[in-house]
Structures are given as C-alpha cells and as structure tokens.
C-alpha cells in the first residue's frame, strides 16, 4: 500500500465543553476520493478548517506527505498544495471569472510582489487560467464578473481556482451544495476526472454523488469517525444505517 498523502492522527478539538473533533484518525491515499459524510453538526467543516490551518487542534497531528503541519498557517499550507473549496462559494465578487483564476495561478506561482507588468497581460498567468476554466466548463465566461455568475458556475469557478493551485490534495467542502440534479451530475463528472490530478477529501451530503465517486467513505458523527470503508461496506454497516443513512438507504 502506498503512503498516504494526508494523514490525520488522533485529532482533537474542543469548543468549550463541546468536543467537535474527538480523536479523529483519517488518511487520504494517492489517486483516491475519500468521502467524509455525517449529519449536520458532526464536525466535518471543523475538520476541514483544521486541515487547512484556519483552526488549530487541541491535540493530535496532521501530516502532509509525512510532514507535520503544526505551526503552519493557512497561507503556508495553501502554498504546499492544499487546495480548498468552500462550503459557501468564496470568490472575489467584483473580479471577473478570469481574474479570479489568474489570482489563483499567481498564488501558486509565488510571484505576487511584481508591480509593473499588468497581470491580465501576462500570458504566463492568463494562459493556464483559461485552460483551467475550460476544464471545468467555464469557457466563454471569462469576462463575466464573479458576482453575476450563476450559483453552479461559481462552484465550478472555485474548482478552477483549486486546480490552478497545482494542488497535491483537494479539500472540497460540499461542492454539490445548492446544485440541481443536473448540476450535480456535471459536477460529479468533473470531480471524477480531478482525482487523476490529486486525491480528494470530499465532504458531501449528496449520497448519490458520494456513492458514485468515493473509493472510501468515512462517517463522522459527533466528532468521531464511527466507520471507514468502501462504499459497499458503509452501505452494509448497521451503525451507519441508524446514525445517518436512514432505513431506505
């Protein structure tokens, strides 16, 4: 078995008396989509925030390619290739779609402190940016302000920005949220293709998408992982059934 890209060991986070991450063990292997599911309030987003450095755990470790990330902030972790999308789309609303992706390409390039040449006249930025937009199906929408894009387009714009960061891991927080059935199908196709780029930690409520995409699934309930396994194992798990999936799953 290959070494995991991302490994989480005994991660614990408390907000006062509430333990939102309770000794979480989790790993993400190369080439896989590992879905994290669980009811609302289970602590999925809190886990993502700890991985990308927005929150700091009280105990436990997060290892990225075997290296402990403790003490690194969100900017440093992003530079390492932890590419993230947000539960609620987070883009620069006044920028055009292209400007948003160019910003991400620029972030990945590490060369932001350049003051003379126009960023949008720099083919080293716009070339890759256009290519990433094409990959998520946003060609032709380059010059539309991000605030005018439809909800589904904004979700895809976020993906293009994540792609632009030369990611080594994708952390996708509910990429299907708010998409209709058709949008979810398109997104599923895009995500399925992304796993060749880098492994994906997928937090998602849309069970159809999860069962289609995931290689493994972990179930988080009240801050604890109650089960990890393949799609079939999770479907068959009685504890998961009662905690989350309901009787008809």
């Amino acid at each position: 078995m290959t070494d995991p890209v991302l490994e989480i060991r005994k991660l614990t986070k408390r907000f006062g008396a509430l333990t939102v991450s309770d000794g979480i063990d989790f790993d993400l292997r190369p080439g896989e989509i590992h879905a994290l599911i669980g009811p609302n309030g289970a602590g999925k987003s809190t886990l993502i925030k700890q991985i990308c450095g927005e929150l700091h755990p009280d105990a436990g470790a997060i290892l990225f390619s075997g290296r402990d990330l403790a003490g690194e902030g969100s900017v440093a972790r992003a530079r390492r290739g932890l590419a993230r999308t947000f539960q609620v789309s987070s883009v620069a609303p006044e920028f055009t779609a292209l400007q948003n992706v160019v910003l991400a390409v620029q972030g990945a390039s590490g060369a932001t402190f350049r003051f003379l040449r126009p960023a949008l006249g720099d083919a080293a930025l716009t070339g890759p940016a256009r290519a990433f937009m094409e990959r998520v199906g946003l060609s032709g929408r380059e010059n539309v302000p991000a605030s005018i894009l439809s909800h589904g387009e904004r979700r895809r714009l976020e993906l293009a920005m994540a792609l632009a960061m030369e990611p080594r891991v994708f952390l996708l927080d509910e990429p299907m949220a708010g998409l209709g059935p058709e949008g979810s199908q398109e997104m599923t196709a895009i995500l399925s293709d992304l796993r060749h780029e880098a492994p994906i930690l997928l937090v998602e409520h849309d069970m159809d998408a999860v069962f289609t995409l995931a290689d493994r699934i972990s179930v988080l309930v009240y801050g604890r992982i109650i089960a990890t396994g393949t799609v079939d194992e999770i479907r068959a798990n009685a504890e998961v059934q009662s905690a989350y999936l309901g009787d008809d799953a």
């Binding site: 992003a78 920028f95 991400a104 350049r114 126009p118 720099d122 930025l125």
Partner: peptide, 20 residues
Amino acid sequence: SRFGLALQGARQNVERVRAV
C-alpha cells in the same frame, strides 16, 4: 499589476486570497 490584483482580491475576500 500582479500586486494590485492580489491587493484588490484581498479587499474583496481576504479568506480567498489566503486560500490561494
């Protein structure tokens, strides 16, 4: 410039700029 793009990005959405 690149600097200006990032600066204006940070005005609109600082979380996003950190994330890239």
